[in-house]
Amino acid sequence: MTTSTPTLTKTPRPGRSGGAPRESRLSRSAAMVIMGAFTLYFLLPIWWLLVSSTKTLGNFNSTFSLWFIPTSLADAGDNIVKLFTYNEGVFPRWMLNSIVYATVAGGIGTILAAMCGYALSKYQFRGRELIFNTVLGGVLVPATALALPLFLIFSQMQLTNTFWAVFLPSLVSPFGVYLSRIYAASSVPDEIIEAARIDGSGEIRTFFTVAVRLMSPALVTIFLFQFVSIWNNFFLPLVMLRDQTLFPVTLGLYTWNSQVSQIPDIRTLVIVGALVSIVPLLVAFLSLQRFWRNGLGAGGLK
């Protein structure tokens, strides 16, 4: 998160004309140069991906890899058609799987985290801090370390190699609980909850009609975090699944990539597939970005 602070602290733009501290020209341009360099650093691989996915395997090595060639447009079309039809259209299936895992599990996970964080913030009960600290401890345990134990547990329940093996573990987000609690504490005043109670609203109704609205920037943030981490979660599906029709797109592309030495043509599909697979992430970010920035900013102004 620290890396994104520059964009956040830039927000008081309207105040510039009215006597806000002015940075020197030198420090401004230094900052611009550094940001420019980092932007280039992050965007270059994506540019490479974009350009490479418009080439045939033959032109992939033999032409300059950061610019298009005359046949790019036609080849890009061919590549995409090939990607979506190869192996009886397994790629769209993987995309669909990823979208279902990430949106459905991310959505339910966000609600669960919000309820949990809200409860921890607004209700006084014995063991509250113990529960919170345990959940917080969960943030420190990398998901990768849990994949093998989860596999053994799911084996006992005969659930490995099923949809549920990837879906169920994706529902929980200790970080989401943490963020919800902090955010609920700062943005949902106790007085409003009191008022709702006096008006005769039940606790659950209060949560969904009042608290959720006040917390919505945080919920978007949690959802995006969940969405991205489920989308990128690779190790859990790798351990749990062996049926190709259940693979998320990350694991599917990885499988293809490991076959490149036997079927060289797949290389193009891996590249185009990687490009297509980031599109849903882009869509999610661009459409929810506004809320997300609000959320982080508001949380930081305590």
Partner: peptide, 22 residues
């Protein structure tokens, strides 16, 4: 089942599955 090649994770999965009996 077509999976990633052995050293890309499948061997480890085989060992885990043998351990779990599936």
């Amino acid at each position: 089942s077509t999976v990633p090649n052995g050293n890309s994770g499948t061997y480890q999965n085989f060992f885990t599955q043998l351990k779990a009996g599936n």
